[in-house]
């Protein structure tokens, strides 16, 4: 604390620090990761009517996001209290979106899979729409959550919601494409998904790069965050540089380019595709981890002025 005060900024440690509760303190990042992949996949799967994808999304949401988040809480048994402050708290609302998403998506997937109720049933579209909209809200909310944090200027911008949203969809396409080897997907659909995926990778890369450049031009704390992410700050943050930027975006981009432009169907080429997709997913994790980990508060510096 004292040390960092001298440096003019303090990194947040509440969400990514090595806490004293061991694994439980580390559970927020998996929660946030699955909290992006799950609705992302839900959206792509819903739009392509890919039922196994919907199932996976539901499982990732409940087991990945829900459980991890609850485990992260200091008082798990009080998790329900999180819904009590809808009037004031964006967090509370985010949790509400998740609950609605959880219920509606589960309901939809179960009903859809049982096939007992026809698509034409009057309730199905309602449930479908509720789940779709709540998945969008749920997907966007962690980004909004960050951007609401005035205290951390690095987060406090419009980039985060956009980035987090797109990353979620990117993750969704990646998972669905990966699933394509196990479940049969219409080749035209997967080709489309792949193109979308390809474009999203480029978009994310551009967003991140421009965000880093713009933010590095701002205050000291933001610069510290950027330096951290580029591994310049004490060599920390290399996971972002190598894991998210190079490994998670640049390399997949190159591999996908090979795949898309040079095509073919050999095993090597398929392996290249899967490698790229897996790298994308780990990249999303590292990117989110990095962004959150790098959140720095400007220190409580006494404003510089006469006589101070």
């Amino acid at each position: 604390m004292i040390k960092t005060l001298r440096e003019g900024f303090v990194f947040q440690r509440d969400w990514t620090g090595k806490g004293e509760r061991g694994l439980r303190d580390q559970m927020l990042m998996p929660a946030i990761f699955f909290g992006a992949i799950s609705p992302g996949l839900y959206i792509t799967a819903l739009l392509t009517d890919f039922i196994p994808g919907l199932w996976v999304s539901v499982v990732l949401n409940i087991a990945g996001y829900g459980l991890a988040h609850i485990m992260y809480l200091g008082r798990m048994e009080r998790f329900w209290r999180g819904l009590l402050n809808l009037r004031h708290s964006w967090i509370s609302r985010g949790l509400l979106f998740n609950i609605i998403f959880t219920i509606s998506s589960t309901g939809f997937v179960v009903l859809r899979s049982m096939g007992t109720v026809a698509d034409s049933d009057q309730y199905m579209p309602v449930i479908k729409w509720i789940s779709f909209i709540s998945s969008l809200l749920f997907l966007a909310y962690p980004g909004f959550m960050l951007s609401f944090v005035k205290a951390i200027p690095f987060w406090h911008s419009a980039v985060e919601p956009l980035l987090f949203f797109i990353q979620g969809v990117l993750g969704g396409t990646a998972v669905q494409l990966l699933m394509g080897s196990l479940f049969r997907i219409d080749p035209s659909v997967s080709a489309g998904l792949l193109k979308i995926n390809y474009l999203l990778v480029i978009t994310v890369l551009l967003i991140i790069l421009s965000a880093l450049i713009i933010k590095s031009l701002h205050g000291e704390a933001e610069r510290a965050s950027v330096m951290y992410l580029l591994g310049i700050y004490r060599g920390e943050g290399r996971l972002f540089l190598y894991g998210a930027l190079i490994g998670g975006l640049v390399i997949p981009l190159l591999l996908l380019s090979l795949f898309i432009f040079y095509g073919g169907h050999t095993a090597v080429v398929t392996a290249t595709l899967y490698t790229a997709l897996i790298l994308e997913l780990t990249g999303i994790y590292f990117a989110k981890y990095g962004f959150i980990r790098a959140g720095a508060y400007p220190s409580d510096t006494i404003p510089k002025r006469e006589g101070v």
């Binding site: 604390m1 200091g74 009080r78 967090i91 959550m145 005035k150």
Partner: peptide, 16 residues
């Protein structure tokens, strides 16, 4: 008695 220990408050507090 009401706190669930989510630490959101802690992250958003500009004054640690």
């Amino acid at each position: 008695d009401e706190c669930m220990g989510c630490r959101y408050c802690s992250v958003v507090c500009p004054y640690h």
